[in-house]
């Protein structure tokens, strides 16, 4: 499996000339997400994949990694072209803790590794995106180290961060630490589908832009999913 996975992943670097948009979904999989929230989240991710696969350029351009964090953080899929993935893996709740910082660190590490592969292969890429979703408070202290990391990358124009809170218990002050440019938004109810639809449209927009060009995100569309 891994061998085939590596081959396919590398081959895509060598045969696909499209500018990549790496997107890391860093998702809370702690026990509190169990039940309806988790189902909605999985539906949203599925919709996200399908929407991107429906667009010819975004499909060749978007590379998605999914990191889930609970007691520990783990990579469900690493960055690779959606052309090759098919359906996304299902995120499942495990354990009661929320290692928010660990998840972010892991996502950034995977991103760093993938960027090196882009550079090595001579593949151009857009500013990477980090989508961070949590429904509570972190139970570890790792976010104290992870948050400055994302802010630093954001300042250097090397990362776009979307911190999203789920439900009333989400600690927005912690989420706010991860981005200096974009204030955290709270999801309306369980509008994961609306959020991911908006996200896929934004990805399509960016993938059709030219590298280095400033892309304005659809701010109107945010009203469809965020509590403003």
């Amino acid at each position: 499996m891994s061998r085939e996975f590596m081959r396919v992943r590398t081959e895509d670097l060598l045969l696909n000339p499209t500018n990549r948009v790496p997107i890391a979904l860093c998702l809370d999989a702690s026990g509190s997400m169990n039940g309806a929230p988790m189902e909605e989240l999985n539906d949203g991710v599925c919709l996200f994949f399908e929407a991107i696969q429906a667009d010819p350029i975004a499909r060749a351009s978007a590379e998605v990694a999914i990191v889930a964090f609970s007691d520990t953080a783990e990579t469900l899929i690493d960055f690779q072209g959606l052309d090759r993935v098919g359906n996304p893996p299902t995120v499942m709740c495990q354990g009661g803790c929320t290692d928010l910082g660990g998840g972010v660190n892991l996502a950034l590490d995977r991103l760093e590794a993938r960027k090196q592969e882009y550079q090595k292969a001579g593949v151009d890429y857009f500013q990477p995106w980090l989508v961070l979703m949590t429904d509570g408070q972190p139970t570890t202290q790792e976010h104290m180290q992870a948050a400055p990391r994302t802010c630093k990358m954001e300042r250097a124009g090397k990362l776009v961060v979307f911190p999203i809170g789920i439900g009333p218990a989400a600690d927005m002050s912690i989420l706010a630490m991860f981005s200096e440019k974009r204030r955290p938004l709270r999801l309306q109810g369980l509008n994961f589908r609306e959020f991911f639809e908006w996200l896929s449209k934004s990805v399509v927009r960016v993938s059709q832009s030219r590298p280095g060009e400033k892309v304005n995100l659809d701010l109107e569309g945010i009203k469809g999913w965020a509590e403003l």
């Binding site: 098919g86 359906n87 499942m92 590490d109």
Partner: peptide, 27 residues
């Protein structure tokens, strides 16, 4: 062909959890 008709219930072509993980946190 699996992707041609995507369906939620189909087994994902990548094992759902725990198959790929980073060796270390620090690069």
């Amino acid at each position: 062909a699996g992707r041609a008709a995507p369906s939620r219930k189909q087994p994902a072509s990548v094992p759902p959890t725990g198959s790929y993980q980073a060796p270390t946190r620090s690069p």
